[in-house]
Amino acid sequence: MDRTRRIQALQVLQRIKEHELDGHAAKMGLIRSHQAQVQSEIDKLDERLAKEAHISTPEAAPFLAGFLKAIQTRRAFLEKEMARLDKDAAQIEGKLFDTYTEARSNEAVLDKTLVEKRREDDLAESASLEEVARNRYLRQMRGET
């Protein structure tokens, strides 16, 4: 593959990797947002439990056990949800790291290829200028000015 096509292919690959990074980051943002919501609900349950977990009136006594059971069930569900979100976040972080590593590797190859192309172009230009100078010198030597 000639150098120009290779550069174009690397640039396309780089854009794809950056798009993948953006996608993973967006997914991570959604997970973090959901985690914050779940944590907020857990905190509210804990507050409610602290405020209402004692018997304030004799009429409330029969309902306390049901209330505590409901809070405990909801908290267990939320903790499972948080664990699932943590697992999903860890997977996305792994993908994010892999994609980032691939993007940086691709960027390094692209930079190296661009430097090589610039050097090749500079050498071609120098050779062309030398040819023009040599031809002019030869014409002057022959007296063709």
Rank of each mutant, 00 (worst) to 15 (best):
R5A: 09
R48Y: 07
A70W: 02
I71F: 01
K95C: 13
L96N: 05
D88P: 05
R84Q: 07
D46K: 12
R32T: 14
T145M: 13
D22C: 03
P58Y: 00
S128G: 08
I7K: 06
I55F: 00
T4Y: 04
G143H: 14
L85Q: 11
R134Q: 12
S128M: 14
R75F: 01
T4W: 04
E125P: 00
A36Y: 03
K27V: 06
L45E: 13
R139D: 14
A89P: 03
I71K: 00
A108C: 01
E130S: 03
F67T: 01
L129G: 03
Y137S: 12
R118Y: 01
A60C: 00
D46I: 04
Q14F: 02
A70T: 03
T57R: 00
V38E: 04
K17C: 09
E120N: 06
Q39I: 02
I71M: 02
D86I: 12
D43A: 10
R48D: 12
T4P: 06
R119P: 08
A133P: 03
R74Q: 08
K87G: 07
H34T: 06
Q14S: 14
T113A: 04
D98V: 03
I7R: 13
M28P: 06
I55Y: 00
A50D: 03
A25L: 05
E120R: 11
H34S: 12
D43E: 11
R84H: 12
K44G: 13
A53H: 01
H34G: 02
R5L: 12
K112Y: 04
A9N: 13
E41M: 01
F63Q: 05
R6Y: 11
A124N: 08
M82F: 02
A103M: 12
E18K: 11
T73L: 07
E79Y: 03
A25Q: 15
E18M: 13
A70S: 14
V132E: 11
K17S: 13
A108F: 03
S56D: 15
L138W: 02
D43V: 00
M82G: 02
G29H: 02
R118M: 08
V109Y: 04
H34K: 15
K117D: 13
S56V: 08
R139I: 02
D88R: 09
D98M: 08
K95W: 09
R75H: 13
K117G: 05
D111Q: 08
Y100P: 01
T99M: 00
Y137P: 01
L13Q: 13
A50Y: 00
E81K: 10
E107M: 01
E125L: 04
K44C: 06
L10V: 09
E18V: 09
E41G: 07
R119D: 15
P62Q: 01
A70Q: 03
R118N: 15
M141N: 05
G94L: 04
E107Q: 11
A89H: 12
G94N: 12
